[in-house]
Design a protein around this nucleic acid. Structure first.
Length: 526
RNA sequence: GCGCCCGUAGCUCAGCUGGUAGAGCACCUGACUUUUAAUCCGGUUGUCACAAGUUCGAAUCUUGUCGGGCGCACCA
């Protein structure tokens, strides 16, 4: 990625992805990985759709990978592992054919017919969604299906090792379980030969020469013997994670703090299997609107679509970059600030030395090659502008932007154009609904109608300043003092707000006819 | 019970590997006899939760206390 022979010493970089990457440098300072590459992993439970957390985890992992690649010439890979052999526990509410799906509860997702009838199975369908999602953001990854891994025998050596260390592994897990689960716990979950369901069966024996477990069917209480290989058994959660680390020799994986205990236990299992558990970082979970925890029923969280409606992907990436180990609120109101901070960093990047650049969030956000800033206009400003100008679309805002800098166009500044779009939407959805139009008094009606007449009789080529003088003249004639009161009337009555744009400019942009219609509408309605 | 994060100006927060506090918003005042999103000058505000320790020196490191938030202990 960095081919220059005048490379700075990026090992001095201190941003968190570099600190994480340093762990991996240390891991392989004596010898390179036997498998030939350094492996990053993120896991994914395919019973739901990808969400903003999925994005964050893959992005953050990719950032560590990027930092590592700046520090080392060792090849790297990122596995995105889909746990698609998981048994379906609940019927999701957002899919068709609920009843049909209900018949398949307990079966591996890849053995359940696709309710959308577009893929081989429900699992395949969700996997496709995941990949679509990741591709949309241009992530570089290798997709891994757990089902295929089991069936192809890639886990075999690890499954055998787990069988050999059956008791040691069981003893790691048992103390963490309640008495009931303790009874039936086994690292292996057999698949029912009849129904294909993943069973939490009591395992009554294991055989390291035949590579089988003997278990008791939960319903018939019949004792059955099943091979642990060939996809006839699946590993239980923590054993599965630790086993996967060992099987693939994963070097790096992040996880949320809700999984801290699992990381500990899975690491122990990984060590029992004779492998070194991955390096990793625990990130904090996001908080909702009021700093409370996010729950679906409250609806106080934010989806990725929500974010991308009001801010660019770059701003979301910035938000994800920033302080992963800190609890942060994730709600609409953080979007403008994140966008502006992204823009600030983009600007400062051009002034920084190479080392500082490597710690700059935009270096990570843009894969090492941030674009040049298009304009110094910030989102907070544009958003105010949209509110002040009561923008319905970006063309009104472009009028203002042109006055600011005539050289800017939607063609040569597409990012700015997008920002304007986000600003308009933010205004439309978060500002506009709270507008209240005041009913004008008789005298105010008189003044406004006078303004309307004056506007209609003004020459075609009147400038913004000309309109402004006209507005001012009316206010003066009606004896408003301070003049602020007159403008307040205009804003409150016509625009439904206490503040507004410079009205002459507004008229120029909105048009005389438009403004007159607006007056007629508000006054007439009164 | 075990564990994680946080506690810096009115609000939201920056302060990386220790050197005697910053930004944005808000607020006050002033350039503009035109209010304004976009200009600019200036101003205000803090025992950096509390205490002890390390140090020549700590908001910054260590420990403890108090306060707030969250996670796990069912499933992945």
């Amino acid at each position: 990625m960095e081919g220059s022979m005048f490379m700075v010493d990026v090992s001095l970089a201190t941003s968190w992805p570099f600190k994480e990457a340093q762990k991996l440098i240390k891991r392989y300072e004596k010898a390179p990985p036997a498998k030939g590459y350094v492996l990053f992993e993120t896991g994914y439970g395919p019973s739901g759709l990808p969400h903003i957390g999925t994005f964050g985890e893959v992005l953050r992992t990719t950032m560590v990978r990027q930092a590592f690649e700046a520090l080392s010439d060792l090849p790297t890979k990122l596995f995105v592992v889909s746990d698609d052999m998981d048994g379906l526990r609940k019927v999701p509410t957002n899919v068709p054919h609920q009843d049909r799906l209900a018949q398949h509860l307990g079966k591996p997702l890849t053995s359940i017919p696709d309710p959308f009838e577009t893929h081989d199975s429900f699992g395949h369908h969700n996997n496709a969604k995941l990949r679509e999602f990741l591709d949309r953001f241009g992530f570089d990854y290798t997709f891994v299906s757990a089902t295929e891994t089991y069936k192809a025998g890639h886990y075999d050596s690890i499954l055998l090792r787990i069988l050999q260390h059956y008791d040691a592994i069981t003893n790691v897990i048992l103390p963490t379980l309640g008495p009931d689960r303790r009874e039936t716990y086994s690292p292996f979950l057999p698949l029912c030969p009849e129904t294909g369901k993943v069973l939490q069966a009591k395992v009554i024996g294991h055989d390291t020469t035949e590579n089988t477990i003997t278990w008791q069917h939960p319903e018939t209480e019949e004792a059955l013997t099943t091979s642990i290989l060939g996809g006839h058994c699946k590993l239980q959660w923590k054993a599965d994670w630790g086993g996967r680390w060992a099987a693939f020799q994963v070097d790096y994986e992040m996880s949320g703090k809700d999984l801290m205990d699992s990381v500990k236990l899975s690491s122990k299992i990984c060590r029992i299997l004779g492998e070194t558990p991955p390096e990793g970082m625990t990130y904090e979970l996001f908080l909702g609107e009021d700093g409370d925890k996010i729950s679906k029923s409250k609806g106080n969280g934010l989806s990725i679509e929500d974010w991308l409606k009001y801010g660019p992907t770059e701003s979301l990436s910035f938000y994800m970059f920033q302080a992963p180990q800190r609890q942060k609120r994730l709600f609409f109101d953080v979007i403008p600030k994140a966008t502006d901070m992204y823009l600030d960093h983009l600007e400062s990047y051009t002034r920084e030395d190479s080392l500082k650049q490597h710690d700059n969030p935009v270096w990570f956000i843009h894969g090492g090659h941030p674009p040049a800033p298009e304009s110094p206009l910030k989102f907070s400003l544009l958003q105010n502008l949209a509110a002040a100008a009561h923008a319905e679309d970006t063309s009104v805002l472009w009028g203002f932007v042109k006055r600011y800098d005539a050289a800017l166009t939607p063609e040569n500044a597409p990012f700015l154009d997008h920002l304007l779009g986000y600003a308009v939407r933010y205004y439309q959805d978060f500002v506009k609904p709270y507008k209240t139009y005041r009913t004008p008094t008789a005298r105010e009606i008189e003044a406004l109608l006078r303004l309307r007449n004056d506007l209609l009789s003004a020459p075609q080529d009147t400038s913004a300043e000309g309109y402004q003088s006209l507005v001012y003249a009316v206010g003066r004639d009606f004896g408003y003092d301070p003049m602020r009161d007159w403008f307040r009337v205009i804003y409150e009555v016509l625009l439904g707000e206490e503040q507004g744009p410079r009205f002459g400019s507004f008229i120029e942009l909105f048009g005389v006819q438009g403004t007159c219609d607006l007056i007629a509408d508000k006054v007439g309605a009164a």
